[in-house]
């Protein structure tokens, strides 16, 4: 029995290698996690791209947002022999080593939501991080009437992008909304779990009875906070915002607990990653103003990420409200 299983596995390995031994590059896409709506949507985008171009993409991710698991998957892929690696790191620092190895082997490495990474060819962001942070703050401030106490919430303190958005949001508040105050706890993490976001909201309101706004970042923050707000009967008096999937928060948008959430289409970003990688694979260069073939990326911006590496950003984000949520279709 054991031998048969081993033989089948070995055969599959050989076949999978053989399948990619054509003229096209071998491409792998590693999401933060699989089996979760945001990344399911990305997967659909990647699959659509693959069907469109007629190139296979290995889409492989962990079942949890554990960075060790993700690094292991990336290591396996690089050792298998790939030409292009696109990914979105759970912990950018943890991925540096394997990305360096990949690039040393000649693999083209394109990241997203990976600000400040060193060992990548390009980091593609849907938007400029400071811009999204300010956008979230502007939206929340408008809901709160530009006054009152608020706190920031992230999936985890190691998620660099989300923390950068939150920092940018605080900077924006300090500059533009003097009547708003950040409570002493400043930032809480919900382990990317809506239930935890709910519990935290309950506890925060207990500790800060005057708390009026929760500036969330990850896609679990607003739904969890909204459920707590609704249950406390504080709709219209306490507000929450974060990046979120329209379908996930439709109930709360409809009943008014959430006024708006921010969104960019991550499947588009994924396609841009793949387009950029193909461009580099073909020997073309990417410069400020290049066209990466998707809406919002017709004339891209290139900036320095602080480590001498370039990152690309589009004009990705927009506000989802009760009026437009249905138009997204996800």
């Amino acid at each position: 029995m054991k031998k048969i299983v081993a033989a089948i596995l070995a055969l599959m390995l050989v076949l999978s290698v053989a399948a990619f031994a054509e003229g096209n590059p071998t491409i792998a896409y590693v999401p933060k996690v699989i089996g979760q709506p945001w990344w399911d949507h990305v997967q659909q985008g990647v699959e659509a791209w693959a069907a469109d171009k007629g190139i296979d993409v290995i889409y492989k991710g962990g079942t949890t947002t554990d960075s060790a698991e993700q690094v292991q998957i990336m290591t396996d892929l690089v050792n298998q022999g790939i030409d292009i690696l696109c990914f979105s790191p759970n912990d950018p620092d943890a991925c540096e080593q394997i990305c360096k190895q990949a690039r040393d082997k000649g693999v083209i490495v394109i990241a997203t939501e990976a600000s400040g990474m060193e060992n990548v060819d390009f980091d593609i962001e849907a938007f400029d991080e400071a811009g999204l942070g300010a956008f979230l703050m502007d939206e929340l401030a408008a809901q709160m009437g530009e006054e009152g106490e608020y706190i920031t919430m992230v999936g985890s303190m190691t998620m660099e992008s989300q923390n950068n958005w939150a920092d940018a949001a605080i900077a924006r508040q300090e500059a533009a909304y003097p009547n708003m105050t950040l409570v002493p706890d400043k930032r809480v993490e919900d382990n990317s779990d809506a239930q935890e976001a709910y519990n935290l909201t309950m506890q925060l309101k207990e500790k800060y009875p005057d708390l009026k706004g929760i500036l969330g970042t990850g896609s679990f923050d607003a739904p969890g906070a909204a459920r707590a707000i609704e249950e406390m009967g504080l709709t219209g008096e306490m507000f929450a915002i974060s990046v979120a999937m329209p379908a996930e928060v439709s109930d709360y948008l409809i009943n008014g607990t959430l006024k708006s959430v921010a969104l960019w289409d991550a499947s588009v970003t994924a396609k841009v990653q793949l387009n950029a990688a193909m461009k580099l694979f073909a020997g073309e260069s990417i410069e400020d103003g290049s066209d990466l073939g998707e809406e919002g990326y017709a004339a891209i911006h290139i900036a320095d990420n602080g480590k001498g590496k370039n990152y690309i950003y589009g004009d990705g984000y927009l506000a989802v409200t009760v009026d437009n949520w249905e138009s997204f279709g996800f």
């Binding site: 089996g35 979760q36 709506p37 399911d40 809506a194 739904p223 379908a247 109930d251």
Partner: peptide, 8 residues
Amino acid sequence: ALKEITST
């Protein structure tokens, strides 16, 4: 491949 079900 069961998916998350939230608002639906």
